[in-house]
């Protein structure tokens, strides 16, 4: 009895997760590759024949490639700054983590307010005399600007999560590690390069994994700011399911996201391995 107790306590949660994650995976495979009970590649053919699929793949990856490195860089600087003590730190921290609780839909709407033709930014620049015509961010013919708007919103909203992970990692680095390096002659940048960054590697790794996997699922903000002007994988899956009612193609979008997530996650784990954490006697 005693031995079984922890398993009994874990069982409901584990079963629930297995069901809610295992079942849809199987169902998605079934929906994607069968028709009337027979194996078929029809859905795959239809999906890859649709230019929107390749566009969605391109934009999803492009958004991640543009956004994530900037976020990592900003978050690192912010975390290092916020790891010191100074007056007003609590207030600054509070402001910095506000975006953690703002959804991508709300974030999209907020930045729409900022960037639309009669929005804050355009009015401000017009009144300052810096521009004479409003900068158009939205509309199919301004796709690149829509892309930029999405990038700005994601930097604004989702840098906080990277920042918090890295700050938490930074706070776990013992002060004596840095003081030891200082005593042995390392200047500020050497300490950053040789001590802080290597010790932060596990935190950077989990921040990158989390951000990348979320980026593969990007949906709400794109849907709000650009609609299908900028197709993304989750958005196309949503579109196929709710507007076209094509469950097979929607499932392939879902499976593409899953495959990309697993692939990228595995890559991060492999290439950002922190060797010192693996060795145990």
């Amino acid at each position: 009895m005693k031995l079984r107790l922890p398993y009994l306590l874990l069982l409901p949660a584990v079963l629930y997760l297995v069901f809610f994650i295992g079942y849809p995976l199987v169902q998605a495979l079934y929906l994607a590759f069968t028709q009337n009970g027979h194996f078929t590649l029809d859905n795959v053919r239809r999906t890859i024949g649709d230019p929107y699929f390749w566009q969605a793949l391109k934009y999803t990856i492009a958004l991640a490639v543009v956004i994530i490195p900037i976020q990592l860089f900003l978050a690192l600087i912010l975390a290092v700054v916020m790891n010191r003590t100074f007056k007003g730190k609590d207030l600054a921290l509070y402001a910095l983590i506000i975006p953690l609780t703002i959804s991508d839909v709300a974030g999209g709407l907020i930045w729409y307010t900022m960037l639309t033709d009669a929005g804050f930014l355009n009015k401000l620049l017009l009144n300052l005399g810096l521009i004479t015509q409003p900068i158009h961010f939205f509309g199919y013919e301004y796709r690149n600007m829509e892309f930029l708007a999405i990038v700005i919103e994601e930097l604004w909203r989702a840098t906080a999560i990277v920042f918090v992970i890295i700050l938490a990692g930074l706070q776990m680095i013992s002060k004596e590690y840095l003081e030891a390096a200082e005593v042995f002659g390392a200047d500020y940048w050497t300490r950053m390069r040789k001590i802080v960054i290597p010790l932060l590697k596990p935190s950077i790794q989990s921040a990158l994994i989390i951000r990348t996997l979320f980026a593969m699922q990007v949906f709400g903000v794109v849907w709000i700011l650009a609609g299908r002007d900028i197709p993304v994988l989750a958005g196309e899956g949503f579109y196929q399911l709710t507007f076209i009612k094509d469950y097979g193609v929607a499932s392939i979008y879902a499976l593409t996201i899953a495959a990309l997530s697993i692939l990228l996650g595995a890559m991060y784990v492999k290439f950002l391995k922190a060797e010192y954490l693996e060795v145990r006697t």
Partner: peptide, 11 residues
């Protein structure tokens, strides 16, 4: 980190 869209569509 399981992607939510993967779960939702077949559900």
């Amino acid at each position: 980190m399981f992607p939510i869209p993967v779960m939702a569509i077949p559900l």
